[in-house]
């Protein structure tokens, strides 16, 4: 019996698609549901926040898409979170663990852990879009990873709605219940020197800050302070600490510098010194 050509072609088409469909059934099958709204209430305890925070980190927060917890070897996309509760207070001089973690969640690209690349989105904005209370829970959970959780529903969280973005002045005062940064030789000095007045709303560019504060008048060859160019290549945390411990009197500055501005300036100096 002669098989019609159309039938042969149909068999080829059906068998090919059936094969590819079969391959599609062999791979892991996972249905990803949209994140559910987290139930938060004012009566939640710290322990409740830790539990809820864990759920958010594993679900709505999408944190584990990039971060790992407890991975010790092999390539890592973003820093492993094990022990972050104890590390957080030591990352940046003058910042408590709560302030540091809050900063990494709201402004994740302000400070990049050495060896990693920027790329984390602010978690309070879409597509992740955590609420301030949910972020409070995440901070409590992250504190619990190697540290002692202290966050309550009443803890003031920097950047949260109703809270002013922390200046270096506010950063110097640890939030309620948080672990203060250890006092080191460079970092012990209060950063109030660079924060005499309220920070302006719009962040100024590093170049504008250098000009505004006339940094080059002291930081130049033949002057008592090291030239700006010599600062190039130093680490961001070191420069930030140096900025916080700046010996100049507050009156030297025409306006205060926000933490974000100070960080941007430290990054700029680390990369380019005083150059544009």
């Amino acid at each position: 019996m002669k098989v019609p050509i159309v039938l042969k072609i149909a068999v080829i088409a059906v068998l090919s698609t059936a094969f590819y469909t079969y391959v599609g059934q062999l791979v892991p099958q996972k249905e990803v549901q949209p994140p559910e709204e987290t139930k938060m209430s004012a009566t939640m305890t710290t322990a409740d926040l830790v539990t809820t925070g864990k759920t958010i980190v594993e679900g709505k927060g999408s944190c584990l898409t990039c971060h790992t917890i407890g991975k010790t070897s092999g390539p890592m996309r973003f820093p492993d979170l094990a022990g972050v509760g104890s590390r957080a207070a030591t990352r940046i001089a003058g910042m408590s663990d709560i302030q540091y973690i809050a900063d990494t969640l709201y402004n994740p690209n302000d400070f990049i852990v050495p060896g990693f690349s920027p790329g984390m989105p602010p978690v309070n904005k879409p597509p992740i879009g955590l609420t301030d209370d949910e972020i409070r829970a995440v901070i409590a959970y992250l504190q619990s990873l190697g540290g002692t959780p202290t966050v309550t529903m009443q803890t003031a969280i920097p950047y949260a709605a109703g809270s002013a973005a922390p200046t270096t002045e506010t950063a110097a005062a640890p939030a309620e219940g948080s672990t203060a940064a250890p006092a080191g030789a460079e970092v012990a000095a209060a950063p109030a020197a660079v924060a005499a007045a309220a920070a302006p709303a719009a962040p100024r560019a590093p170049d504008a800050l250098l000009t505004q504060f006339q940094c080059a008048s002291c930081h130049a060859a033949g002057k008592p302070a090291p030239a700006l160019e010599q600062l190039s290549g130093k680490g961001e945390p070191e420069l930030l600490a140096g900025l916080a411990a700046h010996p100049a009197t507050p009156s030297h500055f025409e306006a205060a510098m926000s933490l974000a501005e100070a960080r941007a300036l430290a990054r700029h100096l680390a990369r380019k010194g005083g150059g544009a």
Partner: peptide, 12 residues
């Protein structure tokens, strides 16, 4: 929701 890959391949 995002369906399973098996489901997606059947639709394709």
């Amino acid at each position: 929701f995002t369906p399973t890959l098996g489901f997606a391949t059947r639709v394709v």
